[in-house]
Every structure is written in C-alpha cells, then in structure tokens.
Design a protein around this nucleic acid. Structure first.
Lengths: 147, 147
DNA sequence: ATAGTTGCAAACTATTTGCTTTTGA
DNA sequence: TCAAAAGCAAATAGTTTGCAACTAT
C-alpha cells in the first residue's frame, strides 16, 4: 500500500486539522496508522507500520509527531514497563489497564465508581485530582475450559 | 562523615544480612543512605548521598545495588515521570502516591478499601491480582490559610 | 513567501556490561 | 582461598536535537 491509496481522512487526521496542525504527508500516514491501531504500540512499532504505507518516514518524525499529538491531547503515553513508551488514542472517559504478567497482553477496562473513589481520596488529602493512573498486573485464573 | 563514623547497623543492612548478601563497604553505605531516606531518591541522588559518606563509590555500583535490592524485595522501583527510576524501601502493605503537579512533591497514603475494590475488579476480568499501581496527580486546594 | 516540518546523523540520558582488580566470608 | 563485587570506561537503548533542505498554507 502506498500513501496515495490511503486517500480518505482518518479520525486522527481530522483531529489534527481541528487543532490547526500542518498536515504533511508523514503526519497523514502516522495519523492513519494511529487511527487503525487498536492496541498500544511503541514508537518502533508505529514506525514499522507507517513505513509499510510510506517508506519515506524517519523515526525522528515519529517521535516528534507522537510528542506533538500527546501535547495536543490526541494521544496518551503509557509506561507499561519494558523501557519504551507506548501510545494510544485518547478516548473520552478514563480507562484502565490490566497487564497479563504471563503474556504481556493488555486488557482495557473502565470503572466510573473507581474514579469517584479516588476523587474523594485526593480531596481528603487536600488535592484536586488532575490526572491519575491505575495499572493492574494479574495472572489469568484457570477455568474448566482451559486445557 | 566517613564510612567509619557510620558504625551501627542500619535497618537495610540487617535485611541484607538476613538475605545472605555479602556486605561490602559500598553496600553498607548505600544501605545506610536508603535507611535514612524518607523520600524517593533516584540513582543519581543515592550516589550523591552515598558519596558524601564515602567517596569510593561508583554509580555503577549504585545501579547494581538497587537492582539487587529490588530483586530481593527490599526496595521498590517507581516511575514518577522525569525519565529516571526512583526507589524507596519496601514497606508492609501497599501504599499509593499522590504527586503534586505544581511542586513535584510526592505524598504517600494507603487505602485498604481500594485494594479490596481492585481485587474484585481483577477477578471480574478473570484475573488474580499480582500487583498494582495507582498514582494520583493533583493540585493543592487553596484554603484560607494560604496567603 | 515563509514559518513550520523533515531527514540524517550526532548528541544526550539513563542504565548495563566486560574486564581487570579488589575484597568479604 | 576464591566466588562475588567494585571500578572504570565502553556499550546499549530510547529519545532528542542541530542544521540544511523541503513543503503546506
């Protein structure tokens, strides 16, 4: 696939335009990749995917772009261990991550009750909650179905 | 202060001995520093503090020692942003961190209710909770006392 | 036209490692 | 005594940056 075949505007590209970002070819490709990623890729992986669509992209640009998009609130950066930052498109409503310690797979979930709880926690400590991070690390519970 | 003046066994040193670690002069100094740290220093800072007690310590040794102590469960490693890992002595009972976004100060607190809540969360998703991480980022609420 | 963006390679930062020398048990 | 630990400097890994050449607006 080449850049030309990727002709319809992606979700992220639309967001970029709304934020007034200059849409270069590279950014369009990266935006496309992000729009279609339903996981939590690191820069290396984004670079790999983007390069498949357009081999005229450098890692530096990917780094610069994810930083920009993070600043604009379009992307979220995570540290799931393993030394590299991982990204995902910002969704409405905070959600959490459960990392399977055996496989490294990440499961997303949300819990509005939990948010209420920690807002109260913060208030008790004299703070207004700006942001928060919850990560669970767990091991799959064996069931009958498991061989 | 020199290494010789630091003659009574520190808490961490005792733990190290219990784990059967070879107690070198350097480890004794680092153990002492850790025992007396009531914050969350990074390696650079530990190195600085240790060097004041004994200028015969290299950063490499600090890195090797914190890794060892982390493996032994004596230390915990945190990522509070800012690019460097930060350490603290493991305490009984999980506790959380609230980071003041304006000053960078870290406040510790615990909440057994919260632990119960997330154990249930994990179970609902079919996982047994192995470990977890909760970090709040907040802004101090202004009160009458504040100038 | 021109401010903003890119590629490239060099720089940087945090951390790890290979190897020789030293040291605690 | 001798495996384990330390120092030093070089290596790695992830990420950032300076600069000259481009490109969207």
């Amino acid at each position: 696939m080449t850049r030309e075949k990727m002709n319809n505007l992606s979700h992220i590209e639309r967001l970029c335009i709304k934020k007034g970002l200059k849409m270069t070819g590279q950014r369009r490709v990266i935006a496309h990749v992000l729009s279609h990623a339903h996981d939590h890729p690191d820069v290396e992986e984004l670079y790999r995917r983007a390069s498949k669509l357009d081999n005229n992209i450098s890692v530096a640009t990917v780094y610069r772009t994810v930083r920009l998009l993070e600043e604009k609130g379009i992307l979220e950066k995570h540290d799931f261990g393993g030394g590299r930052a991982r990204y995902e498109v910002t969704e409405q409503g905070t959600h959490y991550h459960l990392i399977d310690v055996d496989t490294g797979k990440v499961i997303e979930f949300e819990d509005p009750e939990h948010i209420k709880m920690i807002e109260i926690m913060a208030k008790k400590l004299g703070f207004e909650l700006v942001q928060h991070r919850l990560e669970l690390f767990g091991r799959r519970i064996k069931t009958e179905q498991d061989s």
